[in-house]
Simulated scan of single mutants.
Amino acid sequence: MNGRRDPLTIIALVLLIVGGLNWLLYAFNFNLVQAIFGDVRTSILAQLVYILVGLAAIYMLYPLYEMLTASAERPISR
């Protein structure tokens, strides 16, 4: 991420954390998004949350690629 702290990256990371926590809870038969917004089949807000989490994951692919392909001479600043 090269030390970027732009708002879109921060929002994407927060959404990914929310999505990851929801998957953790789902493993214990509790869907947090469904509990808050209702069933995904009937709630537009629940669908929107899932869409935003998916878009955040796609958005974060480029910073991941940058991090993995960074040369040793150019360390990643934090």
Rank of each mutant, 00 (worst) to 15 (best):
E73Q: 00
R74D: 12
Y26T: 08
T9L: 15
Y26P: 01
E66N: 12
A70D: 09
L52K: 01
L55T: 13
L48I: 06
A72G: 04
L48Q: 06
A57M: 09
I10R: 13
A27K: 09
Q34T: 13
S71N: 07
G54E: 01
V18G: 02
G20D: 01
G54L: 08
R74L: 09
R41Y: 13
R41L: 09
V33Q: 03
M67R: 07
Y26H: 11
Q47A: 06
T9H: 11
A46Q: 00
I58V: 15
Q34A: 10
V33W: 00
G20W: 14
T69Y: 04
P63V: 05
L52Q: 02
A46D: 03
L16Y: 10
M1T: 09
I11N: 04
V49W: 08
I11M: 08
P7A: 15
G38K: 07
G20P: 00
L45K: 01
L13E: 14
Y65V: 04
L15D: 05
I44G: 07
V18I: 15
E66I: 03
A35P: 04
Y62W: 11
R78I: 14
F28M: 12
Y59G: 04
D39V: 06
Q34S: 06
R5A: 10
I58C: 10
S77M: 09
D39E: 10
R4A: 14
A70K: 09
R74E: 12
L16H: 10
N29P: 10
S77H: 08
L13V: 15
R78L: 14
L55D: 06
L68G: 11
V40R: 00
V49S: 03
G54A: 15
I11K: 04
P63W: 12
M60S: 07
L64M: 09
I44N: 00
T42K: 06
R78E: 12
L24S: 09
A56K: 00
L16A: 08
W23G: 04
R5W: 10
F37D: 04
A57H: 07
I58P: 03
A56F: 04
L13T: 09
M67D: 12
T9K: 14
V53F: 00
I58S: 05
T9F: 07
I11S: 08
A27N: 12
